[in-house]
Structures are given as C-alpha cells and as structure tokens.
C-alpha cells in the first residue's frame, strides 16, 4: 500500500499589508483576494496560490503558484504576470494606451508621452497599470505633468519578454 502523502506544509504570510498596498495604489477591492493564499518563497518575492493547492513534500517544489509581487525594492512592485492577473480589478492609476503607445510599451521605451485625458485616473508619481481596449498589458512608471515636462511613463515590460520582432503588436 502507498504511504499517506505528506503534503508540503506551506507557511502562508499575512496578506493584509499587501492587499492594503494594492488597494491604496490601484483601488483593487480588498475582498478580491479572499480565494487566494499568499506565500513568500524567498526574500525577493511573494507568490499567489489557490486555496486548494496540495504540493508534495518530496520532491520539494522549486516554485509554486504565480509570482506576484517583487518585494526586494524600495517600492514593492507587481510582477508583469501579477499585473496581467489582477489588473482587470484596478480602478485607479490605470492608463488606456493608444496603438502607438502599445508598441512603445512592448519596445520598453521610456518617457512615453501621455495626454491629459489619459491621466484622469492617475493619482501621483509611481506605478501604473497599462491597458489597451480594456486588456491589461502590464505596468509602467508614471510621472505627472510638471513645469518641466508633460505627463509621461516608462515601460516596465520585462526585457525577457520584449518584442524583438520589431513589428506592431497588432499585426
């Protein structure tokens, strides 16, 4: 007969501070995360798991769930995968891009200009979630209009994912 499986005991973390952070910056409702668990595999990362995950104790998993927030930085930042996942729930600091801006974003451009109309849901300098026709693309860093420059953002599209084909992302 089989030995009883010994599922890995996962030390879930207190998600409250992170949920508050996401609510403060992006207006993501706090109750959105009730069906998930939060896990910190190392000092750099928090991952999001479903509540029914039963990983084995052996072989010990080298990763579990969706890498969600990078925490080894001054201002913790959603991963691109995390942004794609949770972005549809964001209600502020979300910017709808034009087709031209989409291609700039996928080319990892910096100082991409934004119109005033595009920044109506932005609050302060910092992370923004980028979308095109309602589809979440990822994250950028927003600079509001100042005396020196118009509002703009830097693409945070990951180098590893970058669009090397130099074609439009819309064909």
């Amino acid at each position: 007969m089989h030995e009883e499986p010994e599922f890995l005991t996962i030390d879930y973390i207190d998600s409250a501070p992170w949920i508050t952070l996401l609510n403060d910056r992006f207006g993501i409702p706090t109750e959105s995360f009730e069906s998930y668990r939060w896990y910190q595999p190392n000092r750099k990362l928090i991952s999001l798991l479903n509540t029914s995950m039963q990983p084995p104790r052996r072989p010990e998993p080298i990763s579990m769930g969706l890498p969600f927030i990078r925490i080894n930085m001054k201002y913790p930042k959603l991963t691109t995968g995390g942004t794609l996942f949770v972005g549809p729930l964001a209600t502020k600091n979300v910017v709808e891009l034009t087709e031209e801006q989409v291609n700039s974003y996928y080319s990892r451009a910096m100082y991409i200009p934004l119109t005033e109309e595009q920044t109506t849901r932005c609050t302060t300098m910092g992370y923004i979630i980028l979308s095109f026709q309602g589809i979440i693309l990822g994250q950028g860093f927003y600079r509001p209009k100042s005396e020196e420059e118009d509002a703009n953002f830097d693409s945070f599209y990951p180098k590893a994912f970058a669009n090397h084909a130099q074609r439009s992302a819309l064909g």
């Binding site: 089989h2 798991l49 769930g65």
Partner: peptide, 25 residues
C-alpha cells in the same frame, strides 16, 4: 505560468523514473 496567470502549478525538478513514494497519489 507568468503570462497566462496560472495559480495551481507546483514545479519540481526530479527524475520522473524515480519519484519518492510519498509524493502521494
């Protein structure tokens, strides 16, 4: 996993011909 937003995957790096018994059923 990142791009598709998958939450239910635990990755392991092991010889599949020799899994420990207590990996479970």
């Amino acid at each position: 996993i990142d791009r598709l937003g998958l939450l239910n995957i635990a990755m392991s790096e092991y010889n599949a011909a020799n899994f420990p018994r207590d990996i479970g059923t």
